[in-house]
Design a protein around this nucleic acid. Sequence first.
DNA 1: GCGTTGACTGATACTTTGTCTCAATATAGC
DNA 2: GCTATATTGAGACAAAGTATCAGTCAACGC
Lengths: 166, 166
Amino acid sequence: MSQLAQVVQLLEDRNVRLTPPRLAVLAAAAAAAERFSAEEIQRELPRVGRATIFRTLKLLVDADIICRVIQDDGRLLYRWSRRGHHHHLVCRTCGATRDISQCGIPELLGEAARVAGFAMEGHWLEVYGRCQRCLAGEGERPALDAKRATGAAPRSEEVTSVTGAA
Amino acid sequence: MSQLAQVVQLLEDRNVRLTPPRLAVLAAAAAAAERFSAEEIQRELPRVGRATIFRTLKLLVDADIICRVIQDDGRLLYRWSRRGHHHHLVCRTCGATRDISQCGIPELLGEAARVAGFAMEGHWLEVYGRCQRCLAGEGERPALDAKRATGAAPRSEEVTSVTGAA
DNA sequence: GCGTTGACTGATACTTTGTCTCAATATAGC
DNA sequence: GCTATATTGAGACAAAGTATCAGTCAACGC
């Protein structure tokens, strides 16, 4: 079953009507880089209303199909969510990301939380740095946001922040 | 030397002119909760221009006196920055935060980053859960956010985030 | 097939959180 | 006091959503 088919299944299970605009948003999101902005979807689908795009994205977020990703600069992007708890390495130069499945935060900070009288329930971690290509001087791109309007899809592997259950 | 005096000193060192509006913003920020929004400062200082408030906050961010904090929902807050790398425990019920100076992230994830070909430069971690008081059933506050206009300090479920040097 | 009902849509206005511009004003240095 | 420069406040503008509303569409019962 393709990813898209799975998503369709998931939405049908939630009794969400799969209308043409919704499917268009879904397809555009699927065709976009792993991380995409609402604006990209809008650009891709000029005939679909802005409100519909945002509503559909929200729907997908609610269905846990995509997740909202807050970047360093406060911008919001969307990303296909992945099952399983993981974090990301984010390249500050080109925006590329790699997943880290290793976590260890609960073990690391659980004791500190206990001492502070907190019941730890979750955490949120992102690691920033520079990827091999950018370190080597290739792959330098004006940071993703630079002019926002380039339409250039970010390289896949992308960023995200994940709110993970501790 | 008081915190405010230290800040004034810091700004003077940077040749920043300490005009009355700037001092007013500084004082309002100092009087506010540890974490505050630009809106709160505005409400506090109706006679100071909005642009001046934002400019002054930016100035303080540039001077590393306060830091911008991106919340779960993408909203921006400001927070007095502390010397030294630390993270926060955030109570989802009442919004209270506690610092954790212990970090260990670089040690924990450094190897994973290296394997992925990343040069780790910083990270961003928030731990959330419930504080002792909320666990005990006291201290529960109706989510303060409701209409944002209450002037009350932080709302519940906030997640503060800090980008720390790794 | 028809009518009803409720979900969905697109247009558009509005909100929030800033940033930019510009003329007026304050300040520092001489 | 004069001049150059920094700062200010008002207000326009922008990005990224959200809310509202009338119109449309699809499902469902008859």
